[in-house]
Design a binder for these strands. Structure first.
Length: 257
DNA sequence: ATGACCGGTCGTACCGGA
């Protein structure tokens, strides 16, 4: 099974590129984030053979799951998901090909002194609590998406540039460790070029061309699935050219289990 | 060349992204 996750930064703006990418990449299951629409282009994606489950509430956020290996038991949001003040469209789960799949878009946090930062930490803690029963039951689980946290200093282009910023704090990283402590494994993808497994590069100032990026899009898999990972890589080709998202997709090949 | 912000919005600046 070929699984992918991609923050598309507006599925409306990215639709031609998304459709081309689906045709050439041929993923079986796709987790999307930042769809930024309440009206997902389901028909266009369905033409390529995918079932669609989308969760969007307007101009911000928005997540979706695409699958051609089944899409059952869809959940929009998770139990206990915090809001700001109301829950936002940041998580969607479904069972695809025998795997419980979640696509998540973790709150940005903005700055450390902003209420959105506490919201982000609360959100990650609540996600942990919501996933615990699935892992305890031994269900194959993968949580993919834009976590808005760089797990280590090696996951940002220059740690010194991030001192005092969100995405790299001990609290945020501890929230990721708490997820791993449930029995999840960080599937680190191959960069395909250069030493850094970055998945995001700011649009500004030629950051992509200088590989000044961050690894903030993550694939967290239960052990049985992590053991089935044949290859995982970052599709940096999708970050090139005219009209890309600022994030690149991650693609994971799972051998049959 | 991968080439130097972008998407969305009751907009024609500003917010959010990270």
């Amino acid at each position: 099974m070929r699984l992918a996750t991609w923050n598309v930064n507006s599925v409306t703006a990215r639709l031609p590129r998304l459709l081309d990418w689906l045709r050439t990449t041929g993923p079986d299951v796709v987790c999307l984030q930042e769809t930024k629409t309440a009206t997902f282009p389901e028909a266009e994606v369905a033409e390529l053979g995918y079932e669609v489950a989308a969760h969007g509430d307007g101009r911000w956020n928005g997540v979706a799951l695409l699958s051609r290996v089944g899409l059952a038991d869809v959940e929009r949001g998770f139990a206990g998901q915090p809001g700001f003040p109301d829950p936002e469209a940041r998580a969607i789960g479904a069972t695809c090909g025998g795997v419980r799949v979640w696509s998540v878009y973790v709150p940005n946090g903005r700055t450390i002194d902003d209420p959105h930062y506490a919201y982000k930490l609360n959100w990650l803690a609540a996600l942990r609590d919501a996933l615990a029963p699935t892992l305890a039951a031994g269900t194959p689980l993968v949580v993919c998406g834009d976590f808005n946290v760089a797990p280590t200093d090696s996951d940002v282009w220059d740690p010194a540039a991030f001192v005092g910023s969100t995405h790299v704090t001990a609290e945020e990283r501890a929230a990721l460790v708490a997820l791993l402590d449930l029995g999840l494994h960080d599937v680190v993808p191959e960069p395909m070029k250069g030493p850094n497994p970055f998945t995001y590069w700011d649009y500004r100032a030629g950051m992509f061309h200088k590989d000044m990026g961050m690894r903030i899009d993550l694939v967290y898999a239960s052990k049985d699935l992590a053991d089935r990972v044949g290859r995982a890589w970052i599709d940096r080709e999708a970050r090139k050219g005219k009209g890309p998202s600022d994030h690149a997709p991650i693609i994971v090949e799972l051998t049959s289990g």
